[in-house]
């Protein structure tokens, strides 16, 4: 991702970045973009702008919700594997292995079609207050993306918890901190700090997983692009624009995480 705007570099480094061949390459890229803008068909764009904005919003919303929920689930999963008794560590490990060992698309379809076909067979579910929500697609999308993120990040958190030096925890204990305070003040912050670099990568991977929800009728930006392709019979333009949208979101994510990492002092105990 290092090709993305190196805005936080000093001026000298930036001028080294802008070598003559790069100027030529950028000119060629600009010419290609210009050609694409002039000679490809974009007249459909104004009609779908509102829909596309709603799609981007839904993609971001799913991303944020699943990352936050998934991370909250990943902390106990990692802790159970790193330090839990076997009756906690074993199920956590089994969960991570199963989720990481099967494709997300399959998990999504298992939850949506599988659970979706099972639920109506229980009358008490059908009569419950939750049924109008359970009939929609997004709960399944959020659930499966959350579980997937939790499993991958749980594995990372396991390593992060295990990697916090023992001396730190012993010092906290020597200060007479209670187990909960030890966890909250010493263990968790240092583990999160260790996991932060991978967190950025996992979040980008999660963004790249979001278009799968389009296969279960959630209208994210990918579904909007598919819809445009079906409506207008234009193949490449919506896909190229879609790729550009994801590139921009990834760029913003990487940039934001880099800023976040820079804010936290880099010394590890």
């Amino acid at each position: 991702m290092s090709a993305l705007a190196p805005a936080d570099q000093p001026l000298a480094a930036r001028s080294a970045w802008l070598q003559p061949h790069r100027i030529v390459l950028i000119a060629i890229a600009a010419a290609l973009v210009l050609c694409a803008a002039l000679f490809m068909r974009w007249e459909w764009l104004p009609n779908y702008l509102g829909m596309a904005a709603a799609g981007v919003w839904r993609t971001l919303w799913i991303l944020v919700v699943t990352v936050v929920l998934g991370f909250m689930l990943a902390v106990p999963l990692g802790l159970a594997q790193a330090a839990g008794p076997f009756w906690l560590a074993w199920p956590a490990k089994a969960f991570c292995t199963i989720i990481r060992g099967t494709p997300l698309l399959l998990q999504l379809w298992l939850l949506y079609y599988g659970l979706g076909s099972l639920f109506p067979q229980y009358p008490w579910i059908r009569q419950s207050e939750l049924w109008p929500i359970l009939r929609q697609a997004w709960p399944y999308a959020v659930l499966s993306l959350t579980l997937s993120y939790a499993a991958y990040e749980g594995e990372v958190m396991r390593g992060a918890f295990a990697g916090v030096p023992r001396g730190q925890l012993e010092a906290a204990r020597a200060f007479g901190m209670s187990p909960w305070k030890r966890f909250r003040r010493i263990w968790l912050p240092q583990a999160i700090h260790r996991a932060l670099p991978t967190l950025a990568g996992e979040t980008v991977l999660q963004l790249k997983a979001t278009p799968l929800v389009a296969t279960i009728t959630v209208i994210d930006i990918y579904a909007v692009a598919s819809r445009i392709r079906q409506d207008t019979f234009i193949v490449y333009e919506p896909l190229l624009l879609l790729a550009l949208v994801y590139l921009i979101i990834t760029g913003i994510l990487v940039f934001a995480f880099r800023k976040l990492e820079a804010r936290i002092p880099a010394r590890l105990g």
Partner: peptide, 9 residues
């Protein structure tokens, strides 16, 4: 580009 754009796309 390949690592930033979803595989599906």
């Amino acid at each position: 580009i390949v690592r930033a754009v979803p595989e599906l796309v």
